[in-house]
Amino acid sequence: MQILFVSATLLYMLSAAAYCTYLFLQHERLQQAGVWLLAAGFGCQTALFGWAFAATGSVPVNNLHQTLTVAAWTLVGVFLALRTKFNLKILGVYTAPLAVFILLAATQFPNEPLQPQNLLKGVWLFTHILATFIGDAAFVLAAGVGVLYLIQERNIKAKRRDFFFKRLPSLDLLDTTGYACIVTGFTMLTIGLITGMVYAKIIWGHFWQWDAKEVWSAVTWIFYAVLLHERLAVGWRGRRAAIMAIAGLGVLLFTFLGVNFLLSGHHGQFTRW
């Protein structure tokens, strides 16, 4: 159990090191090593997840330690999936260190299983949690791509051919990838919200209770809905889309963590330590 967590963290660290070296040296092998190390770490985490799921029959998100661990796992998973579709090698420089950071943050919190909760069982809840996490991970990657876009755009506008100009891909690829991340994230978030509402109806008898978490989830959803709508309707692309994707991450983080720390609501226990 513990060994899997430690291996995953170490593998992500090695991957982050490989990616950072790749950033400077631009050797294709380093980048490939980065992907494989990340995939290996993801394998460890998947085993860990499967083991916990088999043991308790529920998704292991009982406390902040587990929540962050699952967040890192989905982040890497979404990145690996994205990597097969878009040739955006450089994004690993963002993903791998971030995964390391999340896992290290997770170690700061105790992993004491709370009393078994029947609340966390069932296919609706499983889908709710997984879809939400995948959606959130996609939004985090969208923000990362947005940062890369802004860097590259600034290079081209300012007519600089510095370090990043050569290393970053075309604006078109960055924009398309960011868009794909937003679409994925939005789809998953929608599924997560719907399944969550259905689950709430089953457990509490209400689809919607104006709980702080619910409200902020709706705010997040609306934020990305507006972003997608503007893109489809008037073509919000490029710089503006990138800035919105980064701003969206702020809203997302608040919904994910801030609400639980600062406000009270029925998701509070998952991030308690």
Binding site: Q152, I156, F165, P169, S170, L171, D172, L173
Partner: peptide, 9 residues
């Protein structure tokens, strides 16, 4: 070269 950095292909 610049066009490729903007448009990709």
């Amino acid at each position: 070269e610049l066009g490729r950095k903007i448009f990709g292909s």
